[in-house]
Amino acid sequence: MKNILRVESLTKRFGGLVAVNDLSFEMEARSIHSLIGPNGSGKTTTINMINGTFPPTGGRIYFGETDITGMQTHKISTLGIARTFQNIKLFSTMTVEENLKVGGHSRLAPHGVVSYLLNPVEARKEENKLQVASEEIIAMLRLEDIAKSVVASLPYGKLKIVELARALMSRPQLLLLDEPAAGLNPSERAEFIDVLLKVFESGIDLFLIEHNMDVVMNISDKITVINFGSKIAEGDSASIQNDPEVIKAYLGEKYIMI
């Protein structure tokens, strides 16, 4: 199988604290891969390094065949990796539709400001492309009723979907999801999983960070478990659920059943 993401002995130190320690894993193309671990185990740090928020202290990250280690965030995004955030990062004074259009800016409207001013025909075309693409995604994620609402006025559950929609606007190959189910109630969570599966079927590979077990176990093809920045287990959901190291990390020593 072809890999879409390969991480080789990735390490991140913050001063004296080792947040991620010699982490390696491979993610297959056309799969849903999850990275799980208790709070503070280095999950978000890992996703931040893949996404280019900050460079790793050591190790390398490959996207397909491309070495993306230490690349700037916007370059990584244009290569085809999109992401969502644990604490939603949307443009709160803008409408849902405008948020989506910003998401498609670099892919659909690459012309500079001078050419925009001098060539109104091209400018109109770009805007139309953005309009069509955003309407497509709004329809796919059933956001029609809130498309014209300002983001700051929407409930949390909707914001999660809007952020996902914005990430899709760049038509990524790989989508990194940082705790997609955090803060959602069970019915919203079920709805969100449906949406995620739909996104996956549309041809986008998913890389999830979660500590919410039911989400992970239900949809992941492969799970990597880390604790204190190091990998402690890897495999499909069945094998992870019975792995003594994983149970120890999550529940403590005494819950291991023999």
Partner: peptide, 22 residues
């Protein structure tokens, strides 16, 4: 225009602008 949107986006949330590939 798209530029106005991106300018406002920077004020609203600069990290998200970079993740959008801009």
């Amino acid at each position: 225009s798209k530029w106005g949107r991106v300018f406002t986006a920077i004020r609203d949330n600069i990290d998200a602008v970079d993740t959008c590939g801009i």
